[in-house]
């Protein structure tokens, strides 16, 4: 069975990882507030989700990721497209874009908090900023890479600018753009947690801080696990979209 071949190895690896982790805790004799074992973390994870501790924080973080992505990704695509098609815009924007990217989001986050506070909006802005750059670059490269011969073919049928974008450039650049979205969606999770560390009432980043200060290390691990699962889930969604819509150029 092909399906079993694809499922079994990752499961074996996961089991080995968990067993190693548990062994490390047992042999090392680490206290639960230093390194809790997988069983303890698993139990805390289930409890935190069933007693209503985790859900509000997870929902806040997901909302920040969602709004930030919806804001940042289309803006990035638009900017990348315009930069790809206008040498002037490219020359003007490139230095600023690179400079902005060179400044770590961690350093920028307090400034955003100063300007926009520490609510959902401010956090979404940080997510949008961190998503923006990889999407701009991947769109720029992908649109640049669209086969010029296809564009000439389209021109011979008198396509309008909008038709060219919709019928040729977008589908041709889609695999590249989706690659940028894949990077962007994992960065969005990072952005949301960093944003929450600068302040806020709820969110998985906030929960991590709360747990750390009260030495509830298993809860901290449970929050980390939730973050990791969110990242994997979002990445898989983009991957599914990619498989469904992106047909690589022959």
């Amino acid at each position: 069975m092909i399906r079993r071949d694809r499922v079994v190895p990752p499961l074996v690896a996961l089991a080995a990882f968990l067993a190693g982790w548990q062994l490390l805790v047992l042999v090392g004799g680490y206290a639960t507030f230093i390194l809790p074992g997988p069983l303890v973390v698993g139990e805390r994870f289930v409890v935190a989700w069933t007693d209503g501790t985790m859900a509000p924080h997870a929902i806040t973080t997901l909302a920040e990721i969602g709004f930030g992505f919806i804001g940042g990704a289309p803006a990035g695509m638009l900017t990348g497209y315009v930069m790809a098609r206008s040498r002037l815009v490219n020359r003007v924007l490139s230095p600023y874009l690179v400079a902005a990217q060179a400044v770590p989001i961690l350093a920028l986050a307090p400034l955003i908090a100063l300007w926009f506070g520490s609510g959902l909006f401010a956090h979404s802005v940080i997510v949008a900023l961190i998503v923006f750059f990889p999407v701009v670059i991947s769109t720029l490269v992908a649109v640049h890479g669209v086969d010029r011969r296809l564009l000439e073919m389209a021109r011979s049928y008198r396509v309008t600018r909008g038709q060219r974008l919709r019928m040729v450039e977008l589908p041709a650049a889609l695999p590249g753009i989706l690659g940028g979205l894949r990077i962007g969606v994992t960065l969005a999770v990072v952005g949301a947690i960093v944003a929450e560390w600068t302040g806020g009432e709820t969110g998985l980043g906030v929960l991590i801080n709360l747990a750390r200060y009260s030495f509830k290390i298993p809860l901290m691990f449970a929050a980390l696990l939730t973050i990791a699962l969110i990242g994997v889930a979002l990445y898989s969604v983009v991957l599914l979209v990619e498989r469904r819509y992106a047909i690589p150029a022959a």
Partner: peptide, 10 residues
């Protein structure tokens, strides 16, 4: 008709 077919692969 160009030298290559220039079809849209998708």
């Amino acid at each position: 008709v160009f030298q290559e077919p220039r079809l849209l692969p998708w």
